[in-house]
Amino acid sequence: MNKCLLPAILATALLAGHVQAQSAEVKGDITLTAYSGIFQDKYVEAVIKPFEAKFPGVKVNFFPVGASSAMLGNLRSQAGDPQTDVVIFDVSTSLIGDKEGLLAPLSAADVPNLADLVPQAIVKEGYGPAVTFDNLVVLYNTEAFPTPPTSLSVLWDKAYAGKMAITSMPSILGSGLMVMTSAMLGEDYTKSVTASAAKLAEMAPNVQTFDPKPDAYTLVINGTDVLATGWNARGQYYADQSGGKLGVMLPKEGSILQINTINLVEGAKNPETAKAFINYALSPEAQAAFTEAMFYAPVNAKAKVSDVATARTVAGQLDKMLPLDWGWAATKSDAWNQIWKRQIISAGN
């Protein structure tokens, strides 16, 4: 045997042995709580199944929930006996969970892939980082718009009265729309949302529903509504699935960056396997796979994503994102929610 090859062969054998040992240590069932619907379908295929293949002794049970606020409610009700090990939900909700002690801290020793995340992904030192990036968009029915709209102001066009689905707070689609409306009006939302609230109240009579069911994407595709607010990743996916009936518009006035975080639940029953899953979910391969599957922008700087997919994610539109401190926004959530209920939604009745 060539003596020059011996060190390399030994190193390869040692690495293989380490991987096998690591796989043997990571075992048991964990429960992941995350978004239902198409998110669940794509996440299982792109992330969970490859993780289970890598760690044969692990079973990831996906518990689907429709909204971040409902996930937070579940964590609160189970605080004494958590039934979830890992949770994926929006950043404003995770910051509340951090504050209430519902989520556990993570370190680079626990999750080595933290070292390769882009700066925007580190939401709060020591806690769950971003796992996906997305942005708020206006959805439109392409048959109703031979010329695609370009401005947020289309939501105030009386020509579409009764044909709009606008998701209100407590969803962050509602708080995001308020911030975008403030930008359109030249208002500094960090000081006041009086002007944007009044403007959204003017829009309210045009709205067919503030609680789209089954979802805004379906309502626009089937023509029940012709305009809606939604998320770019799902919008891009459904644009393809609908054969082009659904259009996706990033308003010229700008949008907001939506961040989903991945978190270890305090008191998780299988924390070591949960940490291994979080590490895999943040890996370049998992990040690239989910971006290609559903157009969420990756958070790992080493993820290799096709140019075609990148162009349809927020990664190609970061210069159009409005500044928004989600930690600060979380402190305004209750007050803004009341504004939506009392001033905006009520104006449509």
Results as ranks from 00 to 15, higher is better:
180 M>L: 03
205 P>E: 11
175 S>Y: 08
237 Y>C: 11
177 L>V: 03
162 G>D: 06
286 A>Q: 00
288 A>Q: 10
259 I>R: 04
203 M>I: 11
191 K>T: 15
290 F>G: 09
228 A>M: 05
195 A>H: 07
277 F>R: 07
195 A>S: 12
250 L>V: 14
171 S>Y: 07
275 K>F: 05
207 V>W: 01
219 L>W: 06
236 Q>L: 05
250 L>R: 14
199 K>I: 09
219 L>G: 00
279 N>S: 13
211 D>P: 00
218 T>S: 14
276 A>V: 12
201 A>V: 08
173 L>T: 09
164 M>F: 00
222 N>E: 13
212 P>N: 03
163 K>I: 03
219 L>C: 12
187 E>I: 01
241 Q>C: 06
278 I>D: 01
166 I>Q: 01
164 M>T: 02
180 M>F: 03
287 Q>P: 09
169 M>R: 14
194 T>Q: 14
201 A>Q: 03
275 K>P: 02
192 S>R: 12
243 G>E: 04
204 A>N: 12
263 N>K: 10
192 S>V: 08
261 T>D: 15
257 L>E: 13
188 D>N: 15
201 A>K: 11
179 V>D: 00
264 L>I: 08
270 N>I: 06
197 A>R: 12
221 I>L: 09
223 G>A: 07
229 T>Q: 09
240 D>C: 10
183 A>H: 10
255 S>K: 00
277 F>L: 10
247 G>Y: 05
234 R>C: 13
187 E>T: 02
286 A>N: 00
276 A>W: 02
248 V>T: 11
201 A>R: 05
288 A>Y: 06
255 S>L: 09
243 G>R: 07
174 G>Q: 04
172 I>E: 15
262 I>M: 08
273 T>N: 01
258 Q>T: 15
165 A>G: 10
193 V>I: 15
222 N>K: 11
276 A>N: 12
268 A>S: 15
238 Y>K: 11
215 D>R: 01
245 K>S: 10
254 G>K: 02
252 K>A: 15
224 T>E: 12
291 T>E: 05
232 N>P: 06
268 A>N: 04
186 G>F: 03
